[in-house]
């Protein structure tokens, strides 16, 4: 049988907005709406610089959110990303520090800078491999596994830094990546990294077979397997990618601060999960999008920075996060139920 390339116009014209787009639009309009409301009440909120800051200040969490989103769509948690950020940052510093200082924390492996970076990335990916091993091979719930690997990753970072940080004896070029201004603008390399990552992720999600497989695996793992998809392989890739992204984030952060700090990225896994949930990603799997996650991050950023602008104590951010996630989940459930009645 040959499938002729023809479109049944009646059916195509009737294409209505998918639930996916509906929720993404909903999240986006909430983000914009909240921004406008905040602009009315918070002094100096409605400024170009502030709008940019909402995004650029959160480059790390948004980047992590990409990997976390893909995994959630496939029906799996990744809580290890915060730990990996610390690990890869610490590793990059330790590998690059020159040898032979009397102080243990000042003495590293003295590897060439680029080798240090590759080594740090490899360390991060190894944690991703551990995630995949336990989730795919041993079939242990991903939330338990990634809690464990989060502790292992951060634990290794703590051992290397003796519970503190390493910031001496670094080569001159170490700080370049994290603070490099690109194209003679004030745009820093990490932000560019986030931008490119987002574009790549949206492309993979929307346009590539890999992205589509992620949805199939998350929507119905049994049907996916019976349709010839290698779920195990796919989930393994997703964990490796997520860990690699976290690895790069860790390297960039350690370069920006010129230090490897074992508590860096603390609770970042939590924030990445929060923005994904705000962005309408269903933890049951098979539903959600990177764009949604991005707008989820904007919602969180607007809410927390508006709170700061209103001179609320920073402690409010915890309550605001809780309220935002609660309202997002309830509203999305309600909106979908109403729409599909």
């Amino acid at each position: 049988m040959n499938v002729p390339i023809k479109t049944n116009t009646a059916l195509s014209e009737n294409r209505r907005l998918s639930d996916q787009m509906y929720i993404t639009l909903l999240v986006a309009s909430v983000a914009i709406g909240l921004f406008l409301i905040a602009s009315v009440f918070v002094p100096n909120f409605f400024q170009l610089q502030n709008m940019l800051n909402l995004v650029t200040n959160n480059w790390a969490v948004i980047s992590l959110g990409v990997g976390v989103t893909f995994l959630l769509v496939s029906g799996n948690f990744d809580l290890s990303v915060g730990g990996i950020v610390a690990l890869s940052g610490v590793l990059s510093v330790w590998f690059a520090q020159s040898i032979g200082s009397s102080n243990a924390l000042s003495s590293g492996l003295g590897l060439p800078y680029w080798v240090a970076l590759l080594g740090a990335l490899a360390g991060a990916i190894a944690i991703g491999g551990l995630n995949a091993l336990f989730v795919v091979k041993f079939r242990i719930p991903s939330i338990i596994v990634t809690l464990g690997t989060m502790m292992v990753a951060r634990g290794i970072a703590q051992v290397i830094t003796q519970g503190s940080q390493r910031n001496t004896n670094l080569p001159d070029e170490f700080g370049v990546l994290g603070s490099l201004k690109v194209f003679g603008t004030s745009m820093q390399l990490p932000v560019v990294f986030m931008g490119l990552l987002l574009l790549a992720a949206i492309f993979i999600e929307r346009k590539m077979v890999f992205g589509r497989i992620t949805y199939w695996v998350g929507a119905n793992p049994v049907a996916a397997r019976l349709s010839g998809i290698d779920n195990a392989k796919h989930i393994t890739y997703l964990y490796l990618f997520s860990a690699a992204i976290a690895g790069v984030v860790g390297i960039l952060l350690s370069s920006e601060y010129q230090s490897g700090y074992s508590n860096r990225g603390l609770l970042m896994e939590f924030d990445a999960l929060v923005i994904a949930l705000l962005g309408g990603i269903a933890i049951a799997g098979g539903f959600g999008s990177v764009i949604g996650m991005f707008f989820g991050a904007i919602i969180l950023a607007v809410v927390t920075s508006a709170a700061t602008g209103l001179t609320l104590s920073p402690d409010w951010q915890y309550i605001l996060k809780a309220l935002a996630v609660f309202l997002a989940i309830v509203a999305q459930t309600w909106a979908l139920a109403r729409r599909n009645k």
């Binding site: 596994v145 464990g148 502790m151 951060r154 051992v159």
Partner: peptide, 23 residues
């Protein structure tokens, strides 16, 4: 061992316990 080994050891114990329960 020094105190900063704690997280690593507990994380490893967590993974080990999960794996053995599963087994």
């Amino acid at each position: 061992v020094p105190a900063y080994y704690q997280t690593l050891v507990l994380g490893a114990v967590l993974l080990g316990a999960a794996a053995s329960n599963h087994w």
